[in-house]
Structure formats: structure tokens, C-alpha cells
Design a protein around this nucleic acid. Structure first.
Length: 401
DNA sequence: TCTGGGGTCCTAGGACCC
DNA sequence: TCTGGGGTCCTAGGACCC
């Protein structure tokens, strides 16, 4: 704690992250037009049915384009919209560069998503004013060294720092200390509150709750009755109550998943099996890379009507074997699939534990068949590491000519 | 030519055990 | 002979986030 006995927390959020990052990269490559100055979006490939808006420029936003909508509807709102494909390798690199700068200021950095971090700067500042100077320094350094802008929310509470970074954009610093919530937070629409999504907003409106202030002053028992534990959480958030700490420790992954929307609907079991093989290979490799095994294996399918269904199986022994996971996945698929055309297939591995298998040598002549399978998996992993995950993409996943 | 992909957490109901 | 109740685990689905 500083001398005022309060925490000082930053929430730092890249403005239109994917779009900014692609824009700066293009400028470096010699492109003359800055995507941030025109109506533009980062969007997936429409032909392979991944055509949604992943990020938008301010100009695109002014035309009513929102993240997550289809490029089809986005183009209707803005005729000369520029659409750029995402470059996830670049985004990971930008994200890392940004965190390296944060680490110059404090070791207490929590990566919240690819473009968001929380920083606990309590020990480095004696006052709120000093914290603001620091925030300004960080913001300007990212802009000059990396070429993109961020918003920084400053508060004594993590949740409030996050809400503050979402105020006016771009390239801005905002404070939202506990004593400011009535003035700055309560006037906002209730759907602006973190963890109040589009399903919940109409239900809150039915209770005559329209602003965050309405929610904050509502009877907590009634909220708990209607929304169970999330009712209590919403009420706490509306009142600026959040005791969570900036978690700078190594992030423990709870599950691994991989899903894909198919260029063409899958209609046969054989086609499905080929895709499932790829999904299992990718997830199992990632699982082994973090030296974990999974107890629970699930698959998800999505039909043409966009209805999802899933099926899962908990094993008595955790596994990281591609073969074993694949067999379970196929079984689950056979139980779940009724023969309707599918637009998406997904595999996920949950309930993870440490892998406690003994280290194996390829020269170990006494290997059992299980151990031999592990050696095969390891060999494939090293090939994949050398040539990249996409080197094993099956042709069925690729776009039809 | 409408609707991605990777996560986390919660809940309800059923199975099973004591 | 008629039937409780608590606890835990598993499964399927839903809501939310970026």
C-alpha cells in the first residue's frame, strides 16, 4: 500500500488492437494509407465462411459497424469499407513487445487478453498524481516506440480500472476511483458493465434497471433470486466492489480447445473423422507442450441452423496421447451426430493435471505399446515445432477451388 | 455472401454413495 | 414395506469475455 493506504492499478487496453497492429505493420512495409484513418476492418475469409468483423477503425465505428457482425452486413453499412485479413503471428509479437515495456515499470503485470493487461503499481507511487504521470509516460512510450495507442484506466480497484479504460478513446487516460463511481459510472447503461451481456440486459430492463446506478441501488435479494450468483456479482461490480488482485503469477490454463468452421458443410462420417484428427492433433500437441494431461474430452458440433451441441467424457486416467484422445473423440462423435450437415466441429480438453509420466528414450527397447505411442507423439511434436502447426493442416480444411 | 475462435465460470439434473 | 437426505461427480448447456 502507498501512504494513502490504497492500491494503484492500471488497466491498459490497445485501441482497436488488431486493426492498429495491422495498420502500423503496413506503414512499416511502406504502405501509404493508414488503416486507422479510413473506414476499415480486420475480417476473416468470407468464402470459407469466417467472415466476421474482428476489429474496426473509428471511421468504421461511426458507420455503425460493430465487432462480431458479418462482413456482409458491415459492407451494407459502409460501401467503401476496406477489409484486411488478420495476422495472428504479428498480433502475438505486438502483444509481447507491449508487455516488455510494462515490465520496465513493474513486475506485477497480468496478461488479461492479447491486448489487455493489468498493472499493480502500488509500490511505485506515493500518490494518485504520481500514478497519473507514470500512466502518461507508459502511454507515450508505447506510442513512440511501437506506433500504436492505448487507453489506460487508473483506479484503486481492478474492475474500476477496467471500466475506466473503456471511457473515451483513443489514446486517453481516465481515472475511476471508488469515490468517483457515482459521478462517472452510475450514469452508464447497465449493459456497459463488465459481465453484463446482451442476454442479461433485457432481463434487467424488465426489473426497471436501465443504468449501472439503478443496478447498484437495487435490492440485492431480488437480484440474487433472479440471477443467482451472477446477480450478486453484478451488484458488487455496480458498486465498485472487487477485491481481486493483479495476478502476475504464471497463468494456469484450465483447458485447451480447437474448433473450425468448415468451408463446406460436412455430410459424412469420414469427412468428419479427418477434421477431428486434425483438431485432436493440434490440441494434443498443445497439451503436451505445457506438460499436462487431460481427464475430460469433449466435442462440439454446430449445424446449419447454428445450434450447438456437445458431448464429453471423463476418463479414469488422464491422457495426453493423440491416439487415445482421437478414439474417445470419434466415439463421442458417433454418439452425438444424427447425420445432419455440420458447419463446425470442435474438440476440447479439460480438467487438466500435470503429466507425471517418466521420460522416455527412443532407445528404450522395453517400451510398451503405450510408451511407443508417446514416442511417436513426441516425434510429431518436434516436427510440428520445426515446420509450424499449419504444416499438418489436412486438405479437407482448406478452401475448395 | 449473415453469423470466428479460444477461453472461464456457473447451473441443473442425474447417478451414485452412504 | 415404502422410501429420507446430504454430498460429490459427471454431463450438457448457457452466459460472458476478448
Amino acid at each position: 500500500m502507498n501512504k494513502f493506504n490504497e492500491k494503484l492499478i492500471f488497466h491498459i487496453d490497445v485501441n482497436s488492437a488488431f486493426l492498429s497492429w495491422s495498420a502500423t505493420d503496413r506503414l512499416v512495409q511502406g504502405e501509404k494509407i493508414d488503416l486507422r484513418d479510413i473506414a476499415s476492418v480486420i475480417g476473416g475469409d468470407e468464402e470459407s465462411r469466417r467472415g466476421v468483423v474482428l476489429a474496426k477503425s473509428m471511421e468504421a465505428k461511426k458507420n455503425g459497424i460493430v465487432t462480431g457482425e458479418s462482413l456482409f452486413t458491415a459492407r451494407k453499412k459502409c460501401r467503401d469499407l476496406v477489409v484486411v485479413s488478420p495476422n495472428f503471428t504479428l498480433y502475438e509479437r505486438c502483444s509481447r513487445s507491449m508487455r516488455e515495456i510494462f515490465n520496465d515499470y513493474t513486475p506485477y503485470v497480468e496478461k488479461f487478453s492479447i491486448d489487455e493487461c493489468f498493472l499493480d503499481v502500488t509500490n511505485y507511487n506515493t500518490s494518485r498524481e504520481a500514478a497519473l504521470v507514470l500512466a502518461c509516460d507508459i502511454k507515450d512510450r508505447i506510442k513512440s516506440e511501437l506506433g500504436f495507442t492505448v487507453n489506460i484506466g487508473v483506479s484503486d480497484v481492478k474492475l474500476l480500472a477496467k471500466m475506466a479504460s473503456d471511457f473515451e478513446k483513443p489514446d486517453k487516460i481516465h481515472t475511476l476511483f471508488k469515490n468517483e463511481i457515482e459521478k462517472k459510472l452510475w450514469k452508464l447503461q447497465v449493459g456497459e458493465l463488465f459481465m453484463v451481456g446482451k442476454r442479461t440486459v433485457p432481463r434487467l430492463n424488465n426489473l426497471n434497471i436501465f443504468t449501472i446506478g439503478d443496478l447498484a441501488q437495487y435490492d440485492i435479494e431480488i437480484l440474487k433470486y433472479h440471477f443467482k450468483s451472477s446477480g450478486l456479482r453484478m451488484w458488487k461490480y455496480a458498486n465498485g466492489i472487487d477485491n481481486s488482485e493483479v495476478n502476475y503469477n504464471k497463468y494456469e490454463l484450465k483447458g485447451i480447445s480447437n474448433s473450425t468452421t468448415l468451408s463446406d458443410d460436412i455430410k459424412s462420417k469420414n469427412e468428419a473423422y479427418k477434421v477431428l484428427l486434425t483438431l485432436v492433433e493440434v490440441t494434443a500437441t498443445r497439451l503436451r507442450n505445457i506438460k499436462k494431461c487431460a481427464y475430460c474430452i469433449s466435442i462440439t458440433i454446430r449445424n446449419q441452423e447454428f445450434n450447438d451441441s456437445s458431448r464429453s467424457k471423463t476418463l479414469s486416467n488422464a491422457t495426453d496421447s493423440t491416439q487415445e484422445i482421437l478414439e474417445t473423440v470419434k466415439k463421442l462423435f458417433d454418439e452425438l451426430w444424427k447425420g445432419e450437415p455440420l458447419r463446425l466441429l470442435g474438440v476440447s480438453l479439460n480438467n487438466l493435471c500435470k503429466d507425471n509420466f517418466k521420460q522416455l528414450s527412443i532407445f528404450d527397447v522395453s517400451s510398451t505399446s503405450d510408451e511407443k505411442q508417446r514416442i511417436i507423439d513426441k516425434t510429431i511434436d518436434s516436427l510440428r515445432q520445426k515446420y509450424g502447426e499449419t504444416s499438418v493442416m489436412k486438405s479437407v480444411l482448406l478452401k475448395k477451388k
